[in-house]
Nucleic acid binder design. Structure first.
Length: 746
DNA sequence: CAAAATCCTG
DNA sequence: CAGGATTTTG
């Protein structure tokens, strides 16, 4: 660095009062990095890539082979969109069902109108749908909303016996298929009319800052905002789609098994397994029998086609087995599934069901985790018409009466989706203050809709030369009610260090510390929200008095639209960190013990995990991240030097005359102050080198002050120059995304 | 002009 | 610790 000893620089010194002259700059070679980021960004935006992402996400959290069959089935199922098509594709399920259809007259079964629940469910659906249709018309256009289904069902329901069976199995399904789609609805009632609740002070501050916010910064923020929003929405959409498909498949498969049970009724009654037992005992029986079934696992790896063949072979094999009490010689083997009368076949059926249920519940669990990860707030008032207290107990409690529980089930076409209150009874639904909504302008991947989003009247300076994405963002953010469709920049609940599972604990009421940390890292978002609110004097985010939810509501309000709640990828684990988390801050602080002047490149490498996902979006975001990291270290230094100066002056006042008397030990006041700042939890062993550097710094300050150099406005510059050379190597362990865990558990 | 450092404020 | 302002640098 020529700066360090530049004589020219020194010659100009008199003109400059800056003290940072001479300290090396952390110049980053950002261009290459950004090019890479751009490439990944576009690849992330193309549909295929996204599909892979989603699929991978699901697979990631299932039990590997256990759901292989199901996944293969779903792969095919994904190809068809129309849920009205009774048995599309060539999946096992459709084959099974086709066969069964021939037998039963081809009526597509539905439980929507079962007994008492029909009208109630439909009404609920109507309400929810009409509410959400304003902003997310696709919700209502989804194949799930079909009011005419009950016609067919009424006929079917004449068969009481069949219905009873259905009820039992359906109860199982209900227990497992927790659809977030339902939960996502209904929160939009409160969005309107949120009173302007910004304190004069805040508004002053906001005005003061918004006016001076560089235009370029605004645009870049909006770009990244919209890009992230779009990705979130896309992820969510695909997740939802997948869930719907799975539910559809599950539903159809269930139907098939009812038919099987019909034909094996007599046997079942003999066994007493499936007669009138409670659901619980049925499940237990099922599991018990499954555990007996031996070769089931082989089937998980089979192709769907192979699977059917295998099943066929299984059935036939059993047919031919001696001692089989049912003779089938007379029956044609055209359709092997007409012959499923054996316990073996039942095993097959049970296994299929079990696997479907398992996979389904796993997928659903991941979705539910997203919701449970949200901070717990009071029970929402957003589902007034849906609040039926008993519903909640039906799931976990003993009430397995289908007719009562199903009463609260949301019926969407041929898929029964439980009432959100059933399944999310203890899980907070964001209330109006947290309202995030489906933006009316759905930003499509192709983003060829620049024309759609013309510059809104109130948007003066953000719409001229911006990308389609940012154009969409500005449009949606300023023309509609939600002022900040902001991306998830730093969600606190996927911290590799913090309490990863705390989100699922009842006490997860966000400890004060975590609140604090959360707030710290919310700044990047607040920066953005500041801008976004500039056109919206009314902030629906939170009333100033809600101290508890200050940071939390910030996060929630900025997480974009309501449906993005489900966008928060549950598959993140610890590897996927969006934005800088409190743990990144902690890590940065620990790194400060080694380096006071990290280069931007160093920061990029040591915090590369931040960009695991983010870099797919755009460069602006990366720049924000890096800038924030640099700012962090700048703040660290500020504190550090302030402490040094303070301590040096204090020592002088205490009569210290020689630097020899100044030493920094681990129990001195200065060390404690620093340790408290950078290592609050005191769970990190501060390296000895830091003590040396601190001591050198202190003595530099001491000498400078003794020499009276502090009259020079830039007297600290020399000290900075010294200190910036004292950086030591940051241990490799800090490169690991999980370095905190490793560091603190050693 | 962008990046980065500091100062200052909140 | 973040925002904003200012300055410096390449």
């Amino acid at each position: 660095m020529p700066d360090h000893d530049s004589t020219a620089l020194l010659s100009r010194q008199t003109k400059r009062r800056r003290v940072d002259i001479g300290v090396k700059r952390t110049v980053g070679t950002a261009s290459a990095f950004f090019e890479k980021a751009r490439a990944t960004f576009f690849s992330a935006m193309n549909p295929q890539g996204s599909d892979h992402d989603v699929e991978y996400s699901v697979v990631q959290h299932t039990d590997g082979e256990k759901s292989n069959v199901l996944r293969k089935l779903l792969k095919r199922a994904n190809s068809y969109e129309d849920a009205m098509m009774p048995f599309p594709g060539a999946t096992i399920i459709s084959q099974l069902l086709k066969n069964n259809m021939n037998k039963n007259g081809g009526t597509e079964p539905s439980f929507q109108a079962s007994g008492l629940s029909s009208t109630g469910s439909e009404i609920h659906q109507e309400d929810v749908c009409s509410n959400s249709s304003r902003d997310s018309p696709q919700e209502c256009l989804s194949p799930f909303s079909r009011p005419t289904m009950s016609q067919f069902d009424m006929d079917r329901l004449c068969d009481e016996h069949l219905r009873a069976k259905r009820a039992r199995v359906e109860n199982i399904i209900r227990g497992m298929s927790h659809s977030p789609n339902v939960a996502l609805r209904g929160n939009e009632n409160d969005r309107d009319g949120v009173p302007c609740s910004m304190s004069p002070r805040d508004s002053y501050r906001e005005n003061k800052r918004k006016q001076k916010l560089p235009q370029q910064q605004q645009q870049s923020f909006q770009q990244l905002v919209s890009a992230r929003k779009e990705q979130k929405r896309e992820e969510r959409r695909q997740l939802k789609q997948q869930l719907e498909d799975m539910q559809k498949q599950l539903r159809q498969l269930q139907e098939k098994f009812y038919q099987i049970y019909d034909s094996t009724d007599s046997e079942n009654n003999e066994d007493g397994n499936l007669s009138e037992d409670s659901m619980r005992s049925e499940i237990i029986d099922r599991r018990a029998r499954d555990s007996v079934g031996r070769s089931d696992n082989e089937m998980f790896d089979l192709d769907p086609g192979q699977f059917i063949n295998r099943a066929r072979a299984l059935v036939r094999e059993h047919e031919l087995a001696p001692g089989n009490h049912r003779k089938r010689e007379g029956m044609k083997d055209k359709n092997p599934f007409h012959n499923i009368f054996h316990p073996e076949s039942k095993h097959l059926a049970e296994t299929l069901k079990q696997e479907l249920n398992t996979a389904m519940s796993q997928v659903v669990d991941t979705v539910v985790k997203v919701f449970s990860a949200k901070p717990i707030r009071q029970l929402p008032q957003v589902f007034p018409p849906l609040q039926i207290p008993q519903a909640r107990f039906a799931i976990n409690g003993e009430n397995h009466n289908f007719h009562t529980t199903n009463h609260h089930a949301q019926c969407f076409g041929d898929v029964i989706i439980p009432n959100p209150l059933d399944t999310f009874g203890s899980i907070p639904m964001p209330n109006s203050t947290d309202q995030t909504e489906a933006l009316p302008l759905v930003v499509r991947k192709n983003s060829n809709d620049q024309s759609v989003s013309g510059p809104p009247p109130g948007n003066h300076h953000v719409s001229l030369h911006q990308s389609p994405l940012s154009a969409a963002a500005s449009f949606s953010s300023s023309s509609f009610r939600h002022p900040f469709p902001l991306p998830l920049m730093a969600y606190p609940f996927q911290n590799p260090l913090g309490a990863p599972s705390s989100a699922f604990q009842a006490k997860d009421r966000a400890s004060p510390e975590s609140l604090d940390l959360t707030r710290e890292t919310t700044s990047l978002r607040t920066k953005m929200s500041t801008h976004h609110m500039s056109h919206h004097p009314c902030s629906p985010a939170h009333p100033p008095s809600s101290t508890d939810g200050l940071s939390l509501s910030f996060i929630k309000s900025e997480c974009g639209d309501m449906q993005d709640m489900s966008d928060i990828s549950p598959y993140s684990g610890s590897a996927m960190q969006e934005g800088l988390s409190p743990n990144h801050l902690k890590k940065a602080k620990l790194m400060f013990f080694y380096t006071r002047y990290p280069s931007s490149n160093m920061l990029k490498t040591y915090f590369s995990d931040v960009k695991l996902v983010v870099r797919k979006l755009d460069n602006q975001f990366n720049r924000c991240i890096t800038s924030q990291l640099i700012k962090w270290f700048s703040n660290f230094r500020e504190f550090y030097y302030i402490q040094m100066e303070k301590y040096a002056r204090q020592s002088i006042n205490d009569g210290v005359t020689s630097t020899e008397e100044l030493s920094i030990t681990r129990d001195c006041e200065l060390y404690r102050a620093l340790n408290m700042h950078y290592n609050k939890a005191n769970d990190f062993e501060v390296p000895e080198r830091f003590l040396e550097v601190a001591q050198i710094t202190l003595r530099e300050f001491f000498n400078a002050i003794i020499a009276g150099k502090d009259v020079d406005p830039s007297w600290k510059k020399a000290i900075y120059k010294v200190i910036c050379k004292l950086d030591s190597e940051v241990p490799e362990i800090f490169r690991s995304p999980n370095c905190l865990q490793e560091l603190l558990h050693e």
